[in-house]
Computed example of a mutant assay.
Amino acid sequence: MKKVNWVLLMLVLVGFVIGRFIGTYFEGTFLNYGQAFGLSQPVVLDLGFFILTFGLTIQITIASVIGVVIALVIYRFIR
């Protein structure tokens, strides 16, 4: 099995979050342009005694891509 590099994974996730925050802050600019992928309505599994609701949406914007690139550059310097 391959070893998972948790530092890289965490930096990429932080890059997405910070990029999304920047895109939300500058809402009227090109940084907020992007595409959303996922389920438009959540999937519900109702077994009577147990109800499970699953939904996932990923929104990729220019700002989130820039955040991931910055995270990869930071990873390269700390590695």
Rank of each mutant, 00 (worst) to 15 (best):
L47W: 13
V4I: 04
D46L: 00
L52W: 13
T24H: 15
T61L: 02
F77G: 02
V65K: 01
V68N: 08
F49R: 14
N32H: 10
V44I: 14
F50H: 14
T61C: 01
Y25I: 05
R79W: 10
V73L: 13
F50K: 15
V44Y: 05
A36K: 12
L39V: 09
A63Q: 00
Q35Y: 10
L39Y: 12
V44K: 10
F26R: 04
W6M: 08
L9R: 04
L11Y: 01
Q35N: 11
I51W: 02
I51D: 08
I74W: 06
L13E: 03
F26T: 04
L56V: 08
L9F: 04
V65E: 00
W6D: 06
A36R: 09
L11N: 00
V65Q: 05
R76F: 08
G34L: 08
Q59K: 03
L47M: 13
L56A: 11
Y75R: 07
D46K: 01
G48R: 01
G55W: 02
L56G: 12
G34F: 03
R20E: 12
L13T: 10
I51L: 08
F54P: 03
L56N: 10
T24L: 11
G67D: 02
V7R: 11
G19T: 04
G48V: 04
V44D: 06
V68M: 14
M1P: 07
A36P: 08
L9M: 07
T57H: 03
M10R: 11
L31V: 09
K3W: 11
R20S: 11
W6G: 03
T53S: 08
G23W: 06
V73I: 15
Y25V: 08
L13M: 11
Q59T: 05
R76T: 09
I78Q: 07
V69T: 13
I60C: 05
F16Y: 08
D46V: 00
F49D: 15
T53M: 10
T29C: 10
R79E: 10
F30V: 13
I62V: 14
S40R: 14
G67V: 02
F54E: 09
N32S: 13
G28Y: 06
F50I: 11
T61A: 03
G15D: 05
G19Y: 03
F16R: 06
F30I: 14
L52I: 13
V44W: 07
A36L: 05
M1N: 06
L47G: 11
T53N: 07
V43E: 09
L9K: 01
L47S: 15
